[in-house]
């Protein structure tokens, strides 16, 4: 299930964060949004999630052809992983992961047993089922992010969105989670869009990379292609390529 981003423009007061951005995320692909701070990548991700909205009349977001431009975040079923986890501090790990299932409308809500099964399956997948009763404050950064991932996956999202997910973590944990995410993607082929400013990360993980600067997409392509054929000076300089 792909994501079609059409002609998105977003202005904050006078500042234009995104200028007529067009992007097609192929079904099942892992696409990285790469760029320096202020390039608009996080804003774009949040607009896809429904946490922000483009300027009225300036663009569309489609999930596999379905126009979700005016849908609120809670209607989109787009799993979101925040840089600083945003775990629910007042709930234990189990409840955090179960949350998305518990808030479903009565008709679609699974039974208590089903919830238990689903949650523990996910926790096992991220290898943290033994921490189900703990609270987020008792976990390490890497553990918290894994729970955040499990939580986002619990709702069986149509698309997975990650906002600099490993930015707050140790180098070692970052590497481990990168590997984990790549493997997970290979297994599930869940359409994934993630934002990063770390080019190693983007190139290692992504099928394709979109490079952004000042609200514009400078180049999209698979990593090899970008390295071999940078389209402009910005890309060239940003990636630190030799001439």
């Amino acid at each position: 299930m792909g994501v079609q981003i059409r002609k998105i423009t977003k202005t904050f007061n006078k500042f234009v964060a995104l200028k007529n951005v067009n992007l097609d995320v192929q079904p099942g692909e892992l696409l990285a949004l790469l760029g320096p701070s202020g390039s608009g990548k996080t804003t774009l991700l949040r607009i896809v999630a429904g946490l922000e909205f483009a300027d009225p009349g300036h663009g569309q977001i489609l999930f596999h052809g379905e126009d979700v431009t005016y849908h609120s975040a809670y209607k989109r079923r787009a799993g979101f992983v925040f840089q600083h986890y945003a775990l629910f501090q007042h709930m234990n790990i189990f409840e955090n992961v179960a949350f998305g299932l518990r808030v479903r409308p009565r008709a679609l809500r699974p039974t208590e047993d089903e919830i238990r099964d689903r949650v523990f399956t996910l926790l096992k997948r991220v290898q943290l089922d033994h921490l189900a009763k703990r609270f987020p404050s008792q976990l390490s950064g890497g553990q918290r992010q894994r729970i955040a991932l499990a939580r986002a996956l619990a709702i069986e999202p149509r698309v997975l969105l990650l906002d600099e997910p490993f930015g707050a973590l140790d180098a070692k944990v970052r590497k481990e989670l990168r590997r984990w995410l790549r493997q997970f993607h290979e297994e599930t082929h869940l359409t994934t869009l993630f934002v990063t400013h770390d080019q190693d990360e983007a190139f290692e993980l992504a099928d394709r990379v979109a490079i952004l600067s000042e609200g514009n997409i400078q180049q999209i392509g698979c990593p090899k292609e970008i390295v071999q054929h940078p389209t402009n000076t910005f890309v060239h300089d940003f990636l630190g390529l030799d001439i």
Partner: peptide
Amino acid sequence: AEEEAALTLGAN
């Protein structure tokens, strides 16, 4: 942030 997370998880 937690409120936004809740929204993305489907809470109204």
